[in-house]
Every structure is written in C-alpha cells, then in structure tokens.
Design a binder for these strands. Structure first.
Lengths: 149, 149
DNA sequence: GATGTATAGTTCGAAATCGTACAAAGTGGG
DNA sequence: CCCACTTTGTACGATTTCGAACTATACATC
C-alpha cells in the first residue's frame, strides 16, 4: 500500500527549493548585467511557446502578479530584447514581440549554460535526471491543477 | 554511454523552478501574516539541525547574503520566534536561539502542511516522490560542491 | 605587543516583488 | 444606448533582496 507520508512532500520541496536557488545563481551569472532570471524566463517562454502573447497571459503562465510582469517587461524593453505593441484585437491589452537581440541573447545564454551544465554532467549520471523529469512534470501539473479555483 | 545532453538539465531546472514557486505559495498561505517562506525556512533549519547557530552560518547554509539573513532574523525576532544573544566564544558574532513560540509555530505549520499535502498525495503516487528524492539530494549536493571556490 | 588582514554583523541605497487602487477598454442585460 | 461588471495594464507604496561600505572583534605575523 502506498504510504502517504506528508514528510516526503516536505523533503522533496526542501531539496527543490535549494536546487532552484543554486540553478538560478548559475543562470544569473551567465546573464548580461542588469538582467536576472525572470527576464530570461520570459525570453525563453516567448521563444519556446510563441511570440505576441499579452502580458497577462504570461503573468498567468508564470504565476506572478501582473504588476511584476509589467516590471520585468519594462526591463526587457529597456534592453531592446522585446517590443510591446498595442493589440489590434483588444484596445486594453498589448502584445509582446521578441527582437532579434532578444532571440540572440536567449540562444547565447542557452549555449553558455550548455557548457556549464556539461561540466556538471561529467560528475552526474544523466540517466537519473532523465528518470526524474517526468515525475517532476507530473508533480508540477498536479500542483498547478490543484490551485485552480 | 550516458548522453550528456545539457537540455536535460535545462528542463529539469525549469520544472524545479515552477514547483518551487507553487510550493512556496502553499507554504506562505499557511503562515501567519507578516511571515514568509524565508522565515519558516530559518525556523525549520534551527529545529532540524541545531539551535545556537550564528547568522553567518545560516546565511551560508541557505546561500543568501548575510544582509538578507540579518533582515530575516530581525523579522523573526520581532515576532518573538527567535532570540539573538551574543556569542560568548566570539565577540563579533551572535547566536540564534529558538523560543517556544518559534518551535510551536514550526510544528503547527508542518501539521497544517501535512493535511494540505495529504490532499495532494491522494492524487499522486508517493512512491514516485520517494524515488526522486535521493536523486534531488545528490543533485543538490553536487551543485553545492561545484560552487565552492 | 603592534600592525595588517580576515571575519561577523549592521547600515544604507538600489532594485525586485507584490498588493491596492486606478483609468481605459471590453462585455452583457435591460 | 446605458448601465453594471469584468478585464488589461499601470502608478504607487510597502516589503524583500542584495551589494557596497562601515564598525567591531579576532587572528596572524612580526
């Protein structure tokens, strides 16, 4: 029978919190001055998913208040990495478009992280990462759904 | 041969980042007003590891600047959850001691989270969490060590 | 013991995060 | 059309995070 011990969740979340902090430090060390993790997360999202999203869409996607998204986008715009244009289909909202500089920075950063992670991977069995990824994904989906109302 | 694809790291860190955000939201929703995740993390650390640590020790343990630790401890002290006393062995430093209220709050919060997580666990196979925990721990230890110099 | 260096903690200012309140634009019922 | 209600984005203030500079204490080398 499966043991539903809450402590297991607690310990997993504890480790996840520390790993998040360490990986964020690695990422931010590779970003140009003035840019931090949230900026890159937005760039990455726009590249992977789709250009032309509205700020509110992205705020919801990242579970952050829309005021935080406004702030992050303002920073990206100031660095010429995204453009905000009015939404022709809705006078209230805007659409966020990547600039070429934005795409380039995202690519360069991922490359830099690739070599950094390759150094780490030398000391770590990547198969174990492959194994936990689907569990993390399911956990994330489950928590996301449990938070809907 | 193990495939050292950097993308695997990237994806794992991505999921971890989202899960961290969601779990933090769950935690902070259960904390009394004015207390946030870092406060609880410190309380938990002092309970689990040991009382009487110095602020710098804890700043290093959590990978945060010591100024942030000063701020967090000030908040905990204002709520009567910890006490800071001078370190008799070192005139520069202080030692952080839990109050009974601090221990109680930690226990109560963990209990509350227990029922919350039990609800989640109903929809999730805890064996999978048990399986990924050692991998996360090893990953955390590896990253921690890789960051030493 | 004197002096230079390192460490612990705080103060201060800048940037980030986020809740509240607001203006502008959309939506739906009468 | 008019009204209430919702949604989008922003301005503002409070709190958090964090780097730089500072004080006080410890240590080490002479």
């Amino acid at each position: 029978m499966p043991e539903h011990n809450p402590a297991v969740f607690f310990e997993v979340f504890n480790e996840i919190g520390i790993i998040e902090q360490l990986s964020r430090a690695i990422l931010e060390a590779r970003l140009p001055d003035g840019l931090i993790a949230p900026h890159f997360t937005v760039l990455n999202h726009l590249c992977r998913v789709e250009d032309g999203r509205t700020p509110v869409d992205m705020a919801r996607a990242f579970q952050v208040p829309k005021t935080s998204m406004t702030h992050t986008l303002k920073g990206l715009e100031a660095h010429g990495l995204v453009e905000l244009r009015p939404n022709p289909e809705d006078g209230r909202s805007k659409r966020v478009w990547l600039t070429q500089a934005g795409r380039d920075l995202r690519s360069q950063t991922i490359s830099a992280l690739g070599t950094e992670f390759a150094r780490l991977a030398a000391d770590f069995d990547t198969d174990r990462l492959l194994a936990i990824r689907p569990v993390l994904t399911d956990l994330r989906i489950m928590m996301d759904a449990a938070r809907d109302p």
